[in-house]
Design a protein around this nucleic acid. Structure first.
Lengths: 117, 117
DNA sequence: CAAACATATGAACAAATGCTCATATATAGT
DNA sequence: ACTATATATGAGCATTTGTTCATATGTTTG
């Protein structure tokens, strides 16, 4: 009987690796995680979210503030809304966007901490 | 003299919006933030990072574990390494990869919390 | 209702991304 | 030195992504 080895190399059948597989988050969660972070993976969207951290803003102000076209902004807002990261409310002609919940802010802050070392 | 209005619409010159701009994180940080989250924005990379959360693994085991080609994995590991999210150490022919620091884990967990509501 | 304003959307296109295939590099064993 | 093993890398390709341009939708005002 060989005794257990401590290396993991080519040990896909060993207890260690089987346990590792079982302890991994469900595949589904990992795909959703990637989808969530995709929202933060574009500088335009990150800048939008950063601006909305302070207060709600209308599309026109957001576009001017970030220096991007109304159309590009609108496309990105739609994406962020589908991902439930922002919400909107209408007031007459104007539509105000704001962050959907606190998670966005905490994800944001966590990332900044890492970036700033 | 008009008195201050409470709506923000078309108020790019107002105090409110000027303050908002000043309070935003520096542009540079936002670009780096997007680059950081790009690493988490692909399901292959997320799965790699998830596997490495438990323990270091060699390329061969990782590929088998995740069911992806050695080449695809190697390309992604290079990307993750350049982003300083993983590190590697050689032991003979074998190269073991592990997470570079605790930030990866906390970013990971934070995202999962959001995904799981 | 017509005109002006605020935002949304579809098509088209360029750039970025992730994979595969073939090949290169590095190490170990004989 | 030769071969096998483990990992890395470059080129090519298909897919995805973000933008622009033109146009559509919705809302207020005269």
């Amino acid at each position: 009987m060989k005794k257990e080895m401590e290396i993991s190399y080519l040990h896909l059948n060993s207890k260690q690796v089987r346990r590792l597989i079982q302890n991994m988050p469900p595949e589904q969660d990992l795909y959703e995680l990637a989808d969530l972070y995709k929202m933060f993976a574009d500088s335009t969207r990150v800048r939008i979210l950063a601006a909305l951290q302070r207060k709600e803003l209308c599309v026109f102000d957001l576009a001017a503030l970030l220096g991007i076209s109304q159309s590009a902004l609108s496309h990105q807002l739609r994406i962020l809304k589908q991902a439930k990261l922002v919400k909107s409310r209408r007031e007459g002609k104007i539509i105000f966007y704001s962050l959907a919940d606190g998670h966005v802010e905490s994800i944001f802050k966590q990332g900044l901490e890492h970036v700033r070392e």
